[in-house]
Design a binder for these strands. Structure first.
Lengths: 242, 242
DNA sequence: CGTCATGTTGAGCGTCATCAACAGGAGTGG
DNA sequence: CCACTCCTGTTGATGACGCTCAACATGACG
């Protein structure tokens, strides 16, 4: 599982072994548990091994905005290594198993093998690219396109870690996200999410099952969303310097 | 000017000298010139010495979404060091002077002084934090609060590089952003921007001059925006590892 | 069998987009 | 110096997209 960490990030060589040597503190979590709270000063980073998590902020009025969804292989608080105080909360979306790695161990590793900083750094850059795309998404796409884009993104990310299933044209993947969480992630109301999902279903683009989602017509969904996966940095794992 | 690069980023010591030794290729640009285009593979990073720039993406229909505003001291395409292909375009907003630094020189510097990677890395993390806040901003704030938040953010960033002027309660700073650019940055229409600005002026919160803006009532604007500057990582420059 | 979380539907209304027109200033060329 | 154009800001009218409130349906779970 942890191999994803590096393979998703980008190519590496025998320092995969070095990364593997990092001490992992595995932990099983139920849904809706906080990994990191806003204002915390974590002393370790979390790697999601199984299950989903999300990051969110809240405003004065108490309404939440989900700013990122995280799937197995992600290190949602890698930033805590360098930015001491977290500016948001990270919560499990489903049952999840998470491995914690002490900051000290990572820093020590980077001291021994300085060039390993690049893959981690690049991971945070891809993270930032995803945020940029979310700005575009919530900034000026209509509800249907907005959801379509989100589904395309999540499909692409899940696909890169082998968590999708393709049968004919249908692409199925786990989807533990409720409509109200989807509303908080997309900046729409629950009611409107509901109707927009119905529209996407009626147009034959997607299908939802209990805890999973199926994209029935990828070309159309893709076109509707105006989706371009480049920003995910998945296809061109960068030859890292040094 | 370049001292801002490190001072804004975070504390450093005598390797400021090392950073200073980087070869700079200064260039004067007029407004509306592209620094980097979507799809480019830059071989150098840009540091904004004077003037403003912005990053944007466009969708199929041709409408632009501005995803970031950049001010003197920023390195808007630092990411190009590790992510070869740019997923967006960077354009000058005003007349600007920009210094370019070859990737090779930065990589060489980091090879000599590996721990210098941390300040640069942290810079990209703060960048990402700003994107997260933009997601919240365009995701679920109303027009007036959205603009108020943007003004607070830009004030805070400009203040940190000494580009604001305070006379009594009034805080004045350069503002080369037209209303239609503001619309593209905030995901609102030009017309609505215009009316929202009028409202902010009518409520005595801000005042706009030709190329500058004045915050007349910071407490009220701040409260309206629900602004919390923590995410900018300015007050707690992190003691860097190693 | 009740409770709770989630999903679904309807009605009414508000925020904000769109379309259109116009005003003022800056720069340009005659 | 005077059109002229272009860019920016401003205003009005109209309506759509999406929100809110409210009620109800469904399944999971104890």
């Amino acid at each position: 599982m942890l191999r994803k960490l590096t393979s998703v990030s980008r190519l590496s060589d025998e320092d995969i072994a070095a990364v593997r040597s990092l001490p992992l503190m595995p932990r099983a979590l139920r849904a809706d548990q906080d990994l990191v709270r806003q204002g915390d000063r974590p002393s370790q980073c979390a790697v999601i091994v199984d299950g989903w998590a999300y990051r969110w902020k809240t405003d004065r009025s108490g309404k939440r905005q989900i700013i990122a969804l995280h799937i197995p292989g992600d290190m949602p608080d890698l930033m805590s290594l360098l930015v001491p105080v977290s500016d948001h909360t990270i919560t499990t979306l489903s049952e999840a198993s998470v491995a914690f790695i002490p900051h000290a161990a990572i820093l020590e590793l980077l001291r021994r093998v300085p060039s390993l900083a690049y893959p981690f750094w690049r991971d945070t850059l891809v993270d930032a690219a995803v945020f940029r795309e979310w700005v575009v998404n919530v900034g000026h796409r209509q509800a249907t396109e907005r959801l379509a884009h989100l589904f395309c993104e999540m499909w692409a990310r899940l696909e890169s870690v082998g968590l999708v299933e393709q049968r004919g044209d249908a692409r199925t993947f786990p989807w533990p996200v409720t409509q109200s969480e989807l509303a908080e992630a997309s900046g729409l109301s629950v009611v409107h999410i509901n109707r927009t999902l119905q529209e996407l279903r009626a147009r034959g683009l997607i299908e939802t099952q209990r805890q999973s989602m199926t994209i029935l017509d990828w070309p159309k969904l893709h076109a509707l969303a105006d989706f371009n996966a480049d920003y995910l940095g998945l296809e061109a794992p960068c030859a890292r310097p040094r």
